[in-house]
Design a binder for these strands. Structure first.
Lengths: 205, 205, 205, 205
DNA sequence: TATGAATGAGATTTCATTCAT
DNA sequence: TATGAATGAAATCTCATTCAT
């Protein structure tokens, strides 16, 4: 035929497909999302999708990989490179980071991990290895730094850095599940929790 | 012949079936759980199951109803009838209640609601109406009582009673998803969170 | 217990059940009619129904038997015993008989025979033996009598007594199938057909 | 290996499947016909069948559409375009058309409409809209033409064009139901009926 | 690469029939 | 007799995956 249609570059394909998959999973959940619809949304044939991702499960994993990991990476880098005090970092960049999660598309992935994780052990492992441990150890370092330079006293937070994460997870879940019933002001909820924790660990001696 | 092909136990059946369903949902999740297996586990034919529960969804709702509602009821009654001070109640019965949730079978249901809720709006509504609002309003009353009699000062907790729930939800999710990777001491996690919150709202003026 | 409830007499049971079955079949068709509903409508337990009729098919046959045969019997007797002329009988009792069929509950059975007959050969045979041949031979006799006493000339009707039946069957089918689309004045339709046939066979020589 | 597991023949599939469905419906009736068997008979997997016809009911409709509609169309066109007199058309093309119906596969569909119509209202509506009204109005036009040009006198046939159809329906039903008991000479039956009607409406003034 | 027609295992649900009570 | 709880075979429909083109 005379005129070759515009073709997206091959390198973009996987990203386009995972983006479409995230959208489908978000709308329907993992099981109910049909591979057919993912392909359609990505503007690609089913066969091609299977060329890039060998199974639906593989596709799911790729979605998690491509959307969650970068965020955590960013947090880690931020903590490593910052010149702010620990408290200033928590009130600034960390809070910012935490507040946007319940509003971003990633929140869907958190729900999916909760929902499907038990069924896909190696996905859970991947998530643990690449997301949870990284995030947690970054937070731990930040707190340790705060203790070292006299901002914070030794406290339960040393043992349970998860305390800073719990309100975020709660907001994500609440927002995902009860959006029709109630709207939580997740910004203030997360902020308030942070303040309470800070006031409990600040070294006021 | 020794054993009759079936027995008539109309009264026990529903409970036996919901128990089997909880177990099966717990192992596989809602979608992956097969009605056939639920029936088998209950020692009952598929047909009989459908005599008591008209659809798989109906069965799911019945499971929620029979396992979650009673617990919340108990909490509500406890708060209504207690003669303890607000703080004493939080440190005593409430903490007890909160701590056992991540260990009890109900924890599975919490995960299921998170996982399947968006797909079954009326289940979510049921859960909201019968579990969340009851639980929340009971907690709110307890806090209000504490404020009224001078134990607590006015605080963010008045607006966000969810703060007392977030660590519990976090523990449930963590335990459900990462049981293979890490074991959270959920008792101490929940306790610690409670202590921090209490120290922040105690009226020390 | 003190007061024995009123109990219908045992002899009536089968009739009550076939009546209920006719009603159910009429509403739903044979396949879609549920034995459970027939029993419920008859005010009887499913078990008892199966005591009287060993299978659903048996029940179906009994319904045909009890509702159709008596009518044909009546027609036969009428033709045998009448003192009317052939034409007078056709315009009188026969027409009356023919006109009420599309309006009576029996019309359902005609439709059922058409629908299910091919699936139940022995039911078809029963219907043939007990309904069709009787009816047809009665009509044939009537016509022969008319020819014998000079009312009618020899005609195609001798060979095809079905010609008198076709409009009735047509009315039954039309009424059963297209009741929502169109209402046929079956009385006049049947009457008109009869008149045309009569005018064609009347011996006016 | 010799023969590929499947072939792609998008265009032919629907026709192959409806043909198989007609055969299967003819043997078993609508309800008793299993989709699986239809597929098998068409040499196709169940899944593919559902790719072309979204439900069993849809398949049924397609069968009606593809087999009945064309015939009626042909009749309509014949009546519109003919240069024959009304009587000549009735004795010629119309009679031909009428006589072959009880012998053609379409006869099965007529029986199916009678059997299943009441359960599938929109199928009945489709049949009414696309078959019955077309056929009837064509016949009506033919008769009106005959009256206009002095062949026929005004008669009951103006009101009841169904009179020309009743013998055909009767033949179809008889043939379908009582094939084992009796063989009706449907050609002569239909012919005779037509003659009688013609003799009654011919304008001999 | 790219397509989408084709497959087939499997899931939910229904209902005639049985049988302990 | 009479009940209705219990069975289990089957039927429709879905969808991840394959593969001829």
């Amino acid at each position: 035929m005379a005129e070759p249609r515009f073709r997206r570059r091959k390198e973009d394909r996987p990203a386009e497909i995972t983006a479409a998959a995230l959208a489908e999973f978000s709308d329907k959940g993992y099981d109910a999302a049909r591979v057919d619809d993912v392909a359609k949304r990505a503007g690609v044939s089913k066969g091609l999708l299977y060329l890039y991702f060998r199974t639906k499960e593989e596709l799911f994993k790729a979605v998690v990989r491509s959307f969650v990991s970068p965020r955590i990476q960013a947090l880690e880098n931020g903590i490593r490179d910052t010149e702010l005090s620990a408290e200033a970092f928590l009130r600034g960049p960390f809070l910012e980071f935490a507040k946007q999660i319940p509003k971003s598309p990633v929140r869907v992935l958190v729900r999916l991990i909760i929902a499907e994780g038990p069924k896909y052990p190696d996905l859970t492992k991947y998530y643990w290895d690449n997301v949870v441990t990284h995030g947690l150890s970054a937070i731990r370092q930040l707190i340790a730094r705060g203790v070292r330079n006299g901002e914070f006293k030794a406290s339960a937070l040393d043992e349970f850095p998860q305390m800073l994460v719990a309100p975020v997870l709660f907001s994500v879940v609440w927002t995902s599940v009860f959006s029709k019933q109630h709207s939580l002001d997740s910004d203030r909820f997360i902020e308030t929790n942070l303040e309470i924790i800070l006031s409990a660990i600040r070294d006021t001696a």
